[in-house]
Nucleic acid binder design. Sequence first.
DNA 1: ATATTTCCAGAGTGACCATTGCGAAAAATG
DNA 2: CATTTTTCGCAATGGTCACTCTGGAAATAT
Lengths: 209, 209
Amino acid sequence: MTIAKNAKPASRPRGRPRAFDRDEALAKAAETFWRLGYEGASIADLTAVMGITPQSLYSAFTSKADLYREALQWYQDHVGASTVAALAEGDAVIALTRLLSEAAEEFTKKGRPHGCMISTAVLTCATENEPVARHVSDLRGATLALIRARVERGIDEGQLSPGTDPEALARFVGAMIQGMSVQAQDGASKAALLALARHAVTEIERHRA
Amino acid sequence: MTIAKNAKPASRPRGRPRAFDRDEALAKAAETFWRLGYEGASIADLTAVMGITPQSLYSAFTSKADLYREALQWYQDHVGASTVAALAEGDAVIALTRLLSEAAEEFTKKGRPHGCMISTAVLTCATENEPVARHVSDLRGATLALIRARVERGIDEGQLSPGTDPEALARFVGAMIQGMSVQAQDGASKAALLALARHAVTEIERHRA
DNA sequence: ATATTTCCAGAGTGACCATTGCGAAAAATG
DNA sequence: CATTTTTCGCAATGGTCACTCTGGAAATAT
């Protein structure tokens, strides 16, 4: 009878199930943080957008900081996925070019906040929020490392000239994305971002082997 | 005797003079806003750093938003002065080059916050602070216009090739500065910023007439 | 059914937010 | 010296902050 007691893989919890969809709520929260920032989005704002009460929020996500971290993860998984896809391109120059043109595309999509949720987030904050700022800063650092790794692979595979400085070129591309995020938040059009990105692309192409 | 009644240029006010130096207090306030951001710096933080009480602050500056605006002006006058100086350079390419290398210098100076106080400030905020965000955004727009004007002058004077798109090149340079500000706030060294700026300079030089 | 577990609604927690009234102290004018 | 004018220190304003206590309803397992 009770042989497979612990073998049941997805045992439903005993009590009343959650009334709202966690992922859906997270998506709404992410967009609110994206638009207002970590300090600018209050719990009242979040619960209103998510359509739940504070204690539902706190039972599903343990704190505002934790909810923000999950929202950032959601953003990386859903919106930032195209970044990873662009870098997976076989040729390094094409990869970086796609990275920039897709940034221009993503940063100006209608029906959602402009700019990047990570590139230019929590650059300054109250002292009590410094851990959160450090977390986002680390995410930016990870992206820079990703770009740098792609550049190094490009050098190894002979697509980029051996004299290329991976650190400098990665920071250059990263700065372009960050600057595009700022200008997108200031209302720059997709065309304007593409035009400025073209300058960066020209510089990248100069390093083709 | 009372001939020069209204001619007196600097008539001291009648009452008790202010106990603190206004400019000095403003400088301290600017640095606090610079480090913590508009939303991150509380009145308590500001009064502590400025060494005055709240009502002294409110009598000298009318509100937090107004104090912030004055702090931004102070920043432009004192720190941003080098930007204007760089753009005054006779040759457009040299002007833009100086602009970027001095940004690398200014953004990593010891003894004060890293990054730019304007380039990457108040990108997101609570809805009630949107007027402040718009103000800073306008300042960024003005800087972009300044760079663009310098590019146009460079084309007119024959230093830059006639095919140069002033809008795109100005946005490109602006994005570099904004990106450098982000990375400086994330802890990038002056050398790292100079290295990435060199990529931008190469692209600028490509437009030499 | 009954028992058990969890969710959700209203209201409220102390703490901190930007901002201010009040009265005393201080400096300049007459 | 007396008057005027202004600053400044203490304390407090209502409001919002992130966060939670309590109680009853709801949905599962037994």
